[in-house]
Amino acid sequence: MARHEGRGMASVNYPIGMNLGGDPSQALIHSNPDGKFTVALSAIDLGQGMKQVSRQIAAETLGVPIEDVYVDTADSDTGPHDMGSFASRGTHRMGNAVIAAAREARGVLLDAAAEELEVNASDLVTDGRGNIHVRGAPSKTITVKATAQAAQFKQGKTIAGRGIFLIPLSAVDAETGEMNPNTAFAHACLVADVSVDDETGEVTVLRMTSAYELGRVINPRMVEQQLVGGAWMGISHALYETPEPYYPNPEHGPRDFNEYLMPGPGDIAPYHVTVLERPAPDGPFGGKGPGEMCANPVLPAIANAVYNAVGVRVDELPITPEKILRGIRANGGVKPGPRRGGAVNWR
């Protein structure tokens, strides 16, 4: 009866957006008479942060403070078509559509400001704090608010923009599988440290250490939300979850949260993430999308760590105590692998 520690790793990449393309997103942006902007979308926020990502991208592109932008989603009467929130496509596809819409609206805004200031629009810059300046002549300035009022009530201009982003659909070759799948890929590597009880077969995840390359990070706190929550889901997938524990036998499935097991707040492991940013050439500000991939490396890293700890390969998920105990018995006992490195370089 003993606990055995082990360490395993895995590295993965993940395609951003619908494979093959063919998944458009649209955005509309307009300004109130006082220069406050509304972004109208039909995109879905299921917790991943679609509203805030769109808001930051719109504010950055418009060149106005973030408080001056609100995102309204999703009402089919006001928000134009979007394929939906899946395939890690939100930031990449909708982000690009929002940029296009914001850029068009910004164009009208600067045109209106140019008319008020009697300069060329190409000489104007925004400061992100609600002002428009003439480049090189900081005293010559007008607020976004005054510009919007002038545009609407004096010049008869609508400060608005439309945006769409589409990577057109690719064909697939029947015989070779040749295709144009995705243009942006994110990357990750994750190390899991586990402890395996050779009497109960129970696996405890001691800590995890990872590095993710996600293109431009639009909001690091929200990336952290995705990566930390996704890693928890990865542990859950690796060790606990399935509605068919004896698959392909369909019987004996759980019916509720008493029977469908997931790690609780007392079962979580310390986790350190390092984020790298290699901007995607076609991403919004180079952004990719961390939403889906963040559970993927956890599953094999834990499986490999279990092997390193006790010498048992569990090739069928989830890695239950029963499978580990059967494996130890089949091997004639625990067979630990080589020790890999020392204490982690964090916390």
């Binding site: 939300q225 930390v228 929550g229 928890w232 889901m233 997931m262 609780g264 707040p265 979580i268």
Partner: peptide, 12 residues
């Protein structure tokens, strides 16, 4: 411990 969260991983 009686409250399930499926998004955050509980740490935050």
């Amino acid at each position: 411990s009686g409250n399930i969260c499926r998004c955050t991983g509980y740490e935050p």
